[in-house]
Computed example of a mutant assay.
Amino acid sequence: MILSKAVRYVFTGGLAAFVDLTVLRGLLALGVPLGTSATSSWLIAAAANYSVTSRYVFNQAISRKRASLFLIGALIGLSINISVTLILVQQIGLPPLWAKLSGIGTAFVFNFLINLVWVFR
């Protein structure tokens, strides 16, 4: 059961990552600073992710309570995501899209676990 949820979460996470990276790239192309672009792209991706994750991964209806819990967990994941992104760009010199991809990957495991044990239990 957990394995099938994890596999489905990979798909929803992939969708969220695609949205995140696409929006990030567009905002950067418009000259929006990296921190603002990364945060904005994440917020848009988080909304899409909650909707799809609720239904497809955990087979639950959308609710305000779960949305609130999801957002709290996602904000912690955001701090992980953005910190990794900024460190890799500013300290290591990676291009922003590669750094963002690393930030997404790092936060992915945390986000799945928090959703599994807290948001959709």
Rank of each mutant, 00 (worst) to 15 (best):
F120N: 05
L24G: 09
N115C: 13
A6C: 04
V23D: 15
A74E: 08
Y56N: 03
A107Q: 11
S63K: 12
G77R: 01
I76W: 08
S102T: 11
F112C: 08
F110N: 02
V119Q: 10
K5A: 09
I2Q: 08
W42F: 14
L94Y: 02
V89T: 04
F110W: 13
L113S: 08
S102F: 05
R8G: 00
S68C: 15
L101Q: 07
I87A: 13
W118T: 09
Q90S: 13
N81T: 04
A99G: 00
V32R: 06
S79L: 13
W118H: 09
W42N: 10
S102A: 14
S40Q: 10
K65V: 14
L101W: 06
L71A: 15
L88W: 01
L69C: 05
G35R: 11
L24T: 07
S37T: 05
T22A: 14
V109G: 09
L75T: 12
A29W: 05
A46T: 10
G14K: 02
L28S: 04
A61P: 11
L30N: 08
G31I: 03
N115I: 14
M1D: 11
S79N: 06
S63I: 10
Q91M: 12
V19K: 02
Y50T: 02
F120W: 12
A29G: 09
A48N: 11
Y50S: 02
T12F: 03
S102W: 02
L34W: 05
A29K: 09
K65E: 14
T12P: 01
F112Q: 04
L69A: 07
T53E: 09
V117C: 15
A29F: 06
A45F: 01
L94E: 06
G26V: 02
T39A: 10
I2S: 06
T39V: 11
L21H: 05
A46C: 05
L78W: 04
Q90V: 07
Q60F: 11
F58N: 00
L34S: 08
L113V: 11
Q60H: 12
R8W: 03
V57D: 01
S68V: 15
V109N: 05
P96E: 09
F120H: 08
L97V: 11
R66K: 13
V32T: 05
F112V: 08
Y50K: 00
R64V: 15
T22C: 13
D20Y: 04
A17G: 08
V52D: 02
K5M: 06
G77I: 00
R25V: 15
T85P: 01
L30G: 05
L24I: 08
R8H: 01
V52I: 12
N81K: 01
P96Y: 07
T53W: 03
I104V: 15
V10P: 03
A6Q: 04
V7T: 03
G103W: 07
L78G: 02
R8L: 07
R55M: 15
P33I: 04
F70N: 02
L3F: 13
S41E: 09
Y56A: 08
A16H: 02
A6G: 07
A46F: 01
W118V: 13
L21A: 10
A29S: 10
L101H: 07
A74N: 13
L27A: 05
V84P: 03
L43E: 08
Y50H: 00
W98N: 12
